[in-house]
């Protein structure tokens, strides 16, 4: 079932979150970072913001073929204490 588990707020409905972008691969030129996207059927690494809740920025690992979310962290690696 597609809910996102916000690391701060817990499980919340997908409509509370706003997709920002797919994260580009590490390194690469400014052009690549802004315009090029990694194209994979198994893994999409994305930035979402929990705009309907805590406004935290999330790093989401998702399988674009099935929609299943495998991981959801706060961007920047922060863990709420």
């Amino acid at each position: 079932m597609t809910r996102l588990i916000c690391p701060f707020c817990g499980p919340r409905h997908l409509r509370e979150f706003e997709f920002h972008k797919t994260v580009a691969a590490e390194g690469g030129s400014a052009f690549a970072r802004v315009y090029e996207r990694v194209d994979s059927a198994e893994l999409s690494i994305e930035h979402w913001q929990h705009v309907g809740g805590c406004r935290g920025w999330l790093l989401v690992r998702r399988n674009p073929s099935t929609g299943a979310v495998t991981d959801c962290q706060l961007v920047g690696g922060g863990e709420p204490a």
Binding site: G78, E79, P80, A81
Partner: peptide, 8 residues
């Protein structure tokens, strides 16, 4: 100033 907060 950001997290982790390292406890209270």
């Amino acid at each position: 100033f950001g997290f982790p907060l390292g406890g209270a």
